[in-house]
Amino acid sequence: MPNRELVSRSVAVERVVEARSTALADIATAHVELDAIAGRVLAEDVHAPRDVPPHDYATMDGYAAAAADEPPLDVVDEIAPEDEPPDIGPGTAVRIATGAPLPPRTDAVLKRENATVAEGRLADWELAAGTNVHRRGTTATADERLFAAGDRLAPRHAALCRDVGIDTVPVRERFAVGIVATGTEIHEGRQPDRDSEFLANLVRSWGHVPAEPRTVPDDPAAVRETIESAAADHDVVLTSGGTSVGTADHVSSTLADHDPLFEGVRLRPGRPVMAAVVDGTPVVALPGKPIAAHTAAVLVARPLFTGKTDLSTVTTTPEHHVAMPDADREYAVPVVMEDGRATALGHVDSSLPLYEDRFAPGLVAASTRATLADGFVLTETALEPDEPVDVVPYPAVE
């Protein structure tokens, strides 16, 4: 990619996240029910309205008393979960059910099966304070901030919201995302559009709304008009193809005339990914080859949609030696996981034999069969059979 500045993936992600903040500022706010919070981004901080639990609760059936009391203790009452706890004095205990609130001065629960009770008196009592007790406010304290504005909610967070008494949460409306595939051969139907559908699925899984994909031929004026029109109609735009330096690659010149964020990334596959802000709308332009487009999407574009920059990994050992082509590049090597080892999908001994022992990102980038990988290894150095590596599973980024 002559005459283009390539930035590191971390720099590209940082600039994309900055563009996200700008995009979010223009998005309206809505309140959604808890059954619809997954993937939504909070517009405001969310605080607990009260202490939860509101009392100390028993976590076992048994007997509650003050840990400092000396036995024997008089058993003076019985408490069920629906009861209001009574006040009891020193030297006394209550029989208590799991989930029932403790009387004010009690702070420990003896399991029923460990208790000896005769003639209404608890004979044995030697417990530390807090034994078998769920303390007041351990889930949340009143006015405690549970989530910050900009946090992306997951399905599990509905349980916490419901527990503390929150029925709805304020969220940003989802990004409306334009998707544009460039290429005369695609526009005319001579080749399939292999990128737009997986991009639409990624957008949905990241919590946003993809528009019907559009195609555009390799005409400079048509490419410019299509991208600028998509930017005017959507909150974010993803394009595929037209980002290299060939005579038919016109996306790059369009973005260069607006507010470029970066012209390329030191990442293979995926190097010719670029981004710009077009009339206030973030546009991420992905390479046309499917695996290159997917790699750039999940490693560079994803933070624009999710706000997440971390990558979850699992550690394993490579099955084969795989050399990397050049220095000063980060390579995303697709791998298949089996029996605790990782086989590079594309290696001659894999189910997709594309190269001998030197990673060939260009060949891998063009093969949709590489989508059968379980994840990828991010590396700048060779993979060695005796050296553990971290694999990014595809579910962690999709």
Score class of each variant (00 low, 15 high):
5 E>R: 13
11 V>Y: 00
19 A>P: 14
25 A>R: 06
33 E>W: 15
37 I>R: 05
38 A>D: 15
45 D>Y: 04
47 H>Q: 14
49 P>I: 09
56 D>E: 15
65 A>H: 01
66 A>G: 12
72 P>D: 04
73 L>P: 10
75 V>S: 00
80 A>H: 15
80 A>P: 12
83 D>L: 06
98 T>F: 03
100 A>W: 00
104 P>T: 13
109 V>C: 07
112 R>Q: 13
124 D>H: 13
131 T>F: 02
140 A>W: 02
146 L>V: 08
149 A>P: 03
165 G>R: 15
167 D>W: 11
168 T>W: 08
187 H>R: 11
195 D>P: 05
196 S>V: 07
202 L>D: 01
211 A>C: 15
213 P>L: 09
214 R>W: 09
222 A>R: 03
224 R>I: 02
227 I>F: 10
232 A>Y: 09
235 D>K: 00
237 V>N: 06
244 S>D: 11
247 T>N: 10
251 V>Y: 00
252 S>N: 05
253 S>L: 09
260 P>F: 07
261 L>A: 00
261 L>E: 00
265 V>K: 01
278 V>N: 01
299 L>I: 01
309 T>M: 09
318 P>F: 00
321 H>M: 06
324 M>Y: 08
331 Y>S: 06
334 P>R: 11
344 A>F: 05
347 H>T: 02
355 Y>M: 07
356 E>L: 11
369 R>G: 10
370 A>H: 08
374 D>F: 05
375 G>W: 01
378 L>W: 03
380 E>D: 15
386 D>R: 14
387 E>P: 00
388 P>F: 02
388 P>G: 09
394 Y>C: 12
